[in-house]
Design a protein around this nucleic acid. Structure first.
Lengths: 247, 247
DNA sequence: ACCTGAACACCGTTCAAGT
DNA sequence: ACCTGAACACCGTTCAAGT
């Protein structure tokens, strides 16, 4: 082993340690409560070393955002490979997104924060490009399922809609629903009567029926599909969530 | 006129002046670039006076957020009173939301920012309550149209959906679409091929068809309805937008 | 009663000195 | 070549002094 390889691993581990520490601070004190001083105090490196990894505070935030999107991408890959109809798989994408947002509320909020221009503009070019690549990966998973649905005939596109537009309608519906019902972000009068899982299922069904993606809501036992998500596809995540909500 | 009335008006005018100045700074430098010092430098009052109006920087941000939601509420009221079918009026709500986000990109971004716990928690109780009241008002407009649709028989609710759930599905769809396609917030590879107005119309049609809200997309000349929005209901806003996009 | 701005504590970022 | 932390400029917030 050359020293370079060792150094490289050590650098990566250190970067991960800095990011994990920053995430803990944000969970406790909010994005505005994050301070490089506080990170340095909890980590065995100096300020200068932190600034060797991240050019500024915003670059660190974008790094955290990308770390989170990488995890979502992994969940989406599992959804793509779920054994079932194309509609069951596209439905699993939204379910995965929801599970991730519930398991990692701070990260979900951070991804939204990191999109504001004031944060993005100050980040490294490298990390910004990484962010775009990761988002393309997410979209790739969705497009893969849409493509399968078109091949199998389960999805019949209306002539004025492209696959990218369909992918985008699903994405924005999931994003909007999760963002507005996310407890970390907001808790207003109306929303307290709403249940995220139930509403996401409703909205998905409305949209997928509207897109003519078969089998329709009334032609399939969707409760059973969700049972499979919970006990097979996302078993670990659902168990973690139970622990989190009980503890 | 008693001196109290004069003082009260002066106070309100001053508060508006502070908020407008803060908004200009955010438009130029982003939320992170907003500084009480910069506000004070542009305004004929001292730091202490600014802190008499807003207990802290976050309270000022929430104030700006409420100011923006008040304007949205006014547009929603106009949508409710549009002369047309209930579906034309509910469609106008989403259109109004979109126009507002395009005309006031900084404010749209700010409303999202102001929902993060770190900002909300530091704001005055009073301003937080005002925010909830304003959001209820928005929702009230949507519920009013849903109620009219139910009465006229144009909307037939599926048994498992309540009016509040329908209102929420429309809200989250509009929010998600506008947020993801908002240039101020994000500009990624996929999104550049997307056009906000076109996609919002698509998503609205898919959702409203899915909800069985008549007349269906194919049974009405929606292009004509949108023409009416542009030339009657929201004539001023559309003209302002043209000026903004050409200038 | 309200306004003012100096003063203080804290934070992001840099860079000369050290290894 | 990489690490360190003192130093600097800037910012949020307070409050004694002034009107």
């Amino acid at each position: 082993m050359s020293p370079k390889v060792i150094d490289h691993c050590a650098l990566e581990a250190r970067e991960e340690e800095i990011m994990k520490t920053a995430l803990d601070i944000i969970t406790e004190l909010g994005v505005a409560g994050l301070t490089i001083d506080k990170v340095v105090a909890k980590v065995p490196y100096s300020k200068g070393t932190v600034y060797n990894h991240f050019t500024c505070k915003e670059d660190l935030l974008t790094g955290l955002c990308n770390r989170s999107v990488r995890n979502v991408a992994a969940l989406f890959c599992r959804a793509v490979n779920f054994e079932g109809s194309s509609r069951e798989r596209i439905f699993a994408i939204g379910y995965a997104y929801m599970l991730h947002s519930l398991l990692n509320p701070t990260e979900f909020m951070l991804v939204i924060s990191a999109k504001t221009p004031s944060i993005r503009e100050k980040s490294t070019e490298k990390r910004q490009e990484e962010h775009l690549a990761l988002e393309s990966k997410l979209l790739g998973s969705i497009l893969q399922i849409i493509s399968a649905g078109l091949s199998s005939g389960e999805l019949n596109l209306q002539p004025h809609l492209s696959p990218a537009q369909v992918a985008f309608s699903l994405w924005s519906m999931c994003f909007g629903t999760i963002a507005l019902l996310h407890e970390t972000l907001d808790r207003c009068s109306v929303r307290t009567e709403m249940n995220l899982e139930r509403e996401l299922i409703n909205h998905s069904n409305l949209l997928l029926d509207g897109l003519n993606w078969q089998p329709y809501t009334q032609d399939h036992d969707w409760a059973n599909t969700i049972y499979k998500y919970k006990t097979e596809l996302f078993q670990n995540e659902v168990e973690q969530l139970k622990l989190l909500q009980n503890g």
